[in-house]
């Protein structure tokens, strides 16, 4: 591990106990403009008070449905969109105070979902990969790019001079991974990076991601809607609903028992793989509500089967589940004394 850091030239400052990145109360609200004079009429609360940290070398999976703010969170972490409120601390350095965007982006890179849209169609793939190192003034960018192409399984002699449209989706996504690695990042954000790939290709790319993590000592934030994939790759899982964190914890704990009713519904909504035991009833009715005007209190109360008056009235705080400090859920049922009829029973257990 120390070898990797020496190579990358980026030092591990706080030691293994210090989180690589801390997201503190991130908020991002987008104004929705409408009407002739583009007056501010409504706000999408895309990310509304999201906090978490990612330890060195771990993989944090983020799951949730469309509009839950997982992609916005990813773009906030890498500074592609500006924070409204909250802070980001990268290995002890706070963004905006100790380090600027430029330094942050040397340490954090991202792979996007659409492998085609994330490559410039007029550049050969070796030029695309070499772009970052060239900008950063690293030496021999082209050579570095060829090495990385080889590392992600694309023979540079055959592929380096090709254009994106001459590659398959899986090959393009390998190029995107190489491009992210060319910056020698410590954290790589994978925003639905394997979702658009065919299943057989997805498995190849997941194997590659696991190999690269070991080889380069990387930390991943892995965003996906596919719970099977998240389970396979993540150490911890964060579940988002309408811009908020509803549950976070070790993936085995969450996969064994979901504390938040929304998490439980997400798991129950996974298609069954057993033809003799098919899903008989949908866990939730209706679509996720509009993030423009999120429900009061617990945002899930409009679809929750356990909802009571307290859920609409007061926002639940993240509380510890099952005595395991790493496992937290924001639900009145798990908050002793919250006033929810199931809460006391839970506490008694």
């Amino acid at each position: 591990m120390s070898k990797t850091e020496a190579e990358s030239g980026q030092q591990d400052r706080g030691g293994p106990g210090q989180p690589l990145i801390i997201a503190k109360d991130l908020k991002k609200h987008f104004p929705v403009r409408s009407g002739l004079f583009s007056r501010r009429s409504a706000t999408v609360r895309a990310v509304d008070g999201v906090s978490f940290d990612v330890m060195k070398g771990e993989t944090l999976g983020i799951v949730g449905e469309s509009g839950c703010g997982k992609s916005t969170t990813a773009r906030l972490l890498i500074g592609l969109i500006e924070l409204d409120e909250g802070g980001i601390i990268f290995d002890g350095d706070s963004l905006g105070g100790d380090i600027g965007l430029k330094e942050l982006r040397r340490g954090v890179q991202m792979v996007f979902q659409d492998s085609y849209a994330s490559l410039n169609p007029r550049l050969t793939i070796v030029d695309s990969v070499a772009f970052g190192p060239k900008i950063q003034g690293l030496d021999k960018p082209a050579e570095r790019a060829r090495d990385l192409l080889a590392r992600v399984g694309l023979d540079p002699d055959r592929f380096a001079q090709r254009y994106p449209h001459e590659l398959s989706g899986g090959q393009r996504q390998r190029v995107n991974i190489a491009r992210a690695l060319a910056m020698e990042p410590r954290l790589v954000i994978l925003d639905e990076a394997v979702s658009a790939l065919d299943k057989s290709v997805e498995a190849q790319v997941l194997n590659l991601l696991n190999d690269l993590r070991r080889e380069f000592g990387l930390t991943y934030v892995f965003i996906s809607h596919d719970l099977n994939v998240v389970r396979y790759i993540s150490d911890r899982v964060l579940v988002m609903y309408l811009g908020e964190v509803v549950e976070i914890g070790p993936s085995e704990a969450i996969y064994a028992k979901q504390a938040h009713p929304y998490t439980a519904s997400l798991f129950a909504a996974m298609p069954s793989m057993d033809p003799d035991n098919r899903t008989e009833e949908p866990p939730l009715a209706g679509d996720p509500p509009n993030p423009i005007d999120p429900p009061s209190g617990c945002r899930f109360h409009t679809r929750c089967r356990f909802a009571e008056d307290v859920c609409a009235a007061r926002k639940p705080a993240l509380s510890i589940i099952g005595g395991e400090e790493a496992h937290l859920a924001a639900c009145h049922i798990h908050e002793p004394g919250s006033g929810h009829s199931l809460a006391n029973r839970e506490a008694a257990q």
């Binding site: 592609l80 994330s118 410039n120 007029r122 550049l123 970052g132 491009r179």
Partner: peptide, 26 residues
């Protein structure tokens, strides 16, 4: 609005460089 512009920004490219390398050609 395409992702490769975001990727270039994330690589630390300035506005002029991004326009020159990634936008003009397209």
């Amino acid at each position: 609005a395409l992702d490769y512009i975001d990727a270039a920004r994330a690589s630390g490219g300035g506005a002029l460089t991004i326009i020159r390398v990634h936008i003009i050609g397209n």
